[in-house]
Design a protein around this nucleic acid. Structure first.
Lengths: 197, 197, 197, 197
DNA sequence: GATGAATGAGACTTCATTCAT
DNA sequence: AATGAATGAAGTCTCATTCAT
């Protein structure tokens, strides 16, 4: 009845969604379970959210906002670059950790597939074999440490994959050609400090 | 009624799944629609696949295999590096294009969120502002062209996000600390051409 | 739409099951029809019972409990033997009457077979012919009235048949040998009133 | 192609049905499994039987016929009563043993219920307590050996139960009143050898 | 506002049966 | 006659959402 009570319920629902969606993905998470976890009746969910979709949307946005707020604060903090960069990484990855459930929820189908990681390995291994023969390669290939390079390669490939996944169908062609150009330019031609900018 | 004797039902089902899962995601895609699209009776699906999950798994694996097979072929093709790299990019991204529906299907929940891209922009903008002040930054920040750099940054952030999403819960801590170290080392210290390789 | 607030939904479902399972047997009875008969939505069934099997199990147990409760009450009633035996028969068979649907449900496949009764007749006729030539036979054969005797014979044969049917496979051999011994002893040797009790 | 071959298939199907229906009951047994067990294609079943129902019917009838044929032969065998009775029991129960699967199949739902046996015990225990106080009781109560009597009581109760189960609905009332009369007369009044017949 | 039993549309899946080969 | 892949009707069950209390 007091505002604070209501706010409490909404917050508890968001928190419960966070975990539930993270553990089971959007489709498999049940509104009922989320309500139970938040210690409210199932019907109450609909006092605070239009529907399941809305609950998910709000939960994700909440996660992003948490993340972004912290980052913004850090970016505004004065100090020398190295100090700030360190702080940013520390906080950034801490938050990523806390945001994990919901990010996981977003990739739900991919999750179920152990195939995914296995196939990613295979793909990256092939790419690496090709590119390591070309010492001038740039982008992630400019990274000297082999393990680090492998790691970045995986991240980049994953990034490309999901950039495609997130593209709207009508933008797909443009997206892909842009991506191709970027990769070509970024990987093939290493940064040459001696070139005039 | 017509007992069609075409032998490519399995292939047609995979193709139909490809599109249907891509358009609607795993949960929202209906086995019925896939069957209709493949021009078979609903029951026929279960002659070729154990259940919906299995159909999805096989469809995804099929996509990966297509992709990988082509890449493998290209990687084995003799020729000079630039030629092969070009070919690899051409084919790679063409195949990525054809694989799009299913990749999209894997990220189904993320899809529904226009939020996602918007938030990603915001996040990257913040990061860029910080890092552009530090000309010695490496990794994607060593990329000179500003647009290209922005693009790579997005891809990298996406990659990190989904690398986390794909991590098994018990490996999360390790994954994150490894990722942090990689980012720190990779971004902070630029490739130094003067160093002996 | 009407959110009926009557609290006897479970009872109504049991009653509806009682009839439906009785009329059609377990497999052929449809949960939908039971729900309609109980005037609830199909989904409501699953608020009260885990699944169709559970509904059946509960319905049968309910029937037994009704039956047993009455019998127990009667058995505890004071009074002389004849009075109590009469009462027991009256109530017992009345209850059997009300329990009929579900008992019928339990023997569903047997039901569909008109064969069953026909074959039973034939079998009993044969047995009777043999045994009536032996005036000293005991058990049901000690019954003097020929119709009554025929009747008891049928009941006994049916009882033996279903005792076998209810035996667990691993107990079958033991069950049968025990049954054989019982029949041999019980039928062959008449009660001899001259023996000291 | 040769008649013998066909006969072979039909026989194999009956045999397979015998086991399958016995193991799983009518509804749960699958035509496909029966066909596989008989080493024929599913479609072939319909060359020999109109449908699943018909297959079941024929299988049951086959069981009865086996049973009956043997009994008939025994009943026609000359010899003194005791000898023939022994032989009858031996063969009868051996055949019952072999017929077990199908009898079990007929009581399929009852089978699944461990309740059944438990409830039967309870019921019989109650009845026995009442009747053992009345030494003049007849029928199964005239049996002296207590274990034997308990056993016969169970068989009789089972027989009554399934006699009801097998009764057509329109004959139920008549059946029950007849049964009641029989039980009353049979149990209450012991065979009195001194009475004039 | 909160509740939670009730709702009912709709999904997946099974399997008896058919029929082109 | 035999095959067995294909069929498709129909059933069970789930779960987001509602609404009487």
């Amino acid at each position: 009845m007091a505002r604070s009570r209501d706010g409490d319920k909404r917050a508890r629902l968001i928190a419960a969604s966070f975990e539930q969606f993270g553990e089971r993905g959007f489709a498999a998470a049940r509104v009922c379970d989320i309500a139970r976890r938040a210690n409210v009746a199932p019907g109450t969910v609909y006092t605070y959210f239009a529907d399941k979709q809305d609950l998910f949307r709000c939960t994700v946005q909440y996660g992003w906002d948490e993340f972004q707020t912290e980052l913004d604060r850090l970016l505004r903090t004065p100090g020398d670059f190295h100090f700030r960069f360190d702080a940013l990484l520390d906080y950034g990855f801490d938050l990523l950790h806390s945001v994990y459930p919901i990010v996981r929820g977003m990739a739900e189908e991919a999750n179920r597939l152990d195939l995914f990681n296995e196939n990613l390995e295979r793909l990256c291994a092939g790419l690496e074999r090709l590119l390591e023969s070309h010492p001038e390669a740039g982008g992630v290939f400019a990274v000297r440490d082999p393990d680090l390079r492998t790691y970045f390669l995986k991240i980049t490939v994953l990034g490309i994959l999901f950039k495609v996944a997130l593209a709207a169908p009508e933008e797909l062609d443009h997206e892909i050609s842009e991506m191709k150009a970027a990769v070509k330019q970024g990987f093939l031609h290493p940064p040459s400090p001696e070139e005039p900018i």
